[in-house]
């Protein structure tokens, strides 16, 4: 793992909100094709990292490089077109649009965009891949929770990412849906897409991640293979407490 140069390299990332240091001196290397888990208690800065990497908020300092290209300072749409895609902690569905229209935006405006007709065809293929083929014409507002999650994944994939950032994408799914979700993420990786996932579902982290990093109070406190990291007493103290084993 160390002999491959990282696809995504985060160095010294900083962000303060007023007096609160939400993210401080955060480093992360993500090797191509990996699934990296980003865990930590609520408020530890995980989503802020994701927002900084995708240009949703401006960093106070640090560097985020995708295959050597600096992302910090670029607007969100440029980072998307540079092939970093994301989903959102609270599902963001376009309620007045159909499933197809919800996903089409990524193919029309993401990396390597195409014209309307080929974009529709690509989106229909993508909907098929994530199990939404039958819901293509359904309004976003009428979709079930798991289908809304699928739409978000499909929309992110439609932008043709090299790195996919998932923000608690598996949260709130029931046990059988969770298995579907885990299988979908595996499938994404098998297509050559590198994944960074913020997640609280330990079962998914153990099943999917090659590497896990733990944040607490804005800083990285542990990193390594999932089993080793989850056994770390410091991690257990800040994060797992006694509600998980």
């Amino acid at each position: 793992m160390t002999d491959t140069s990282p696809l995504l390299a985060i160095r010294g990332l900083h962000k303060s909100f007023g007096g609160l240091q939400a993210v401080r001196a955060f480093d992360l290397d993500v090797t191509p094709g990996a699934i990296v888990g980003l865990i930590g208690p609520n408020g530890s800065g995980k989503t802020t990292v994701l927002n900084l990497v995708t240009g949703e908020i401006a960093a106070d300092g640090g560097s985020v490089r995708l295959a050597g290209q600096e992302m910090i300072g670029l607007p969100a749409f440029r980072i998307c077109r540079a092939r970093i895609a994301r989903t959102f902690q609270l599902v963001r569905i376009l309620p007045g649009m159909t499933t197809r229209e919800n996903v089409l935006v990524g193919r029309l405006f993401g990396a390597a965009p195409v014209a309307l007709e080929p974009a529709r065809r690509d989106v229909d293929a993508l909907l098929h891949r994530v199990g939404l083929a039958e819901r293509a014409e359904q309004p976003g507002a009428q979709l079930t929770y798991i289908d809304q999650k699928r739409v978000e994944l499909a929309r992110a994939l439609a932008t043709q990412p090299r790195v996919l950032l998932l923000d608690e994408w598996l949260a709130g799914l029931n046990p059988s849906e969770l298995q579907i979700g885990i299988a979908l993420i595996r499938q994404v990786r098998s297509e050559g897409i590198t994944v960074v996932m913020i997640e609280h579902v330990m079962e998914a982290i153990r099943a999917l991640c090659d590497h896990v990093v733990v944040m607490s109070a804005g800083a990285l406190i542990a990193a390594g293979a999932p089993d080793a990291v989850l056994r770390d007493p410091e991690v257990a103290r800040v994060y797992l407490g006694d509600d998980d084993a």
């Binding site: 998307c80 963001r92 935006v105 405006f109 439609a158």
Partner: peptide, 25 residues
């Protein structure tokens, strides 16, 4: 055309529009 659709996406959720590659500004 894509432009009219982009305007609708912005109206539905501008954050989604930005992160799906639309130069919203």
């Amino acid at each position: 055309a894509p432009l009219g659709y982009a305007l609708r996406v912005i109206g539905e959720d501008e954050m989604v529009a930005r992160h799906a590659g639309i130069d919203t500004t």
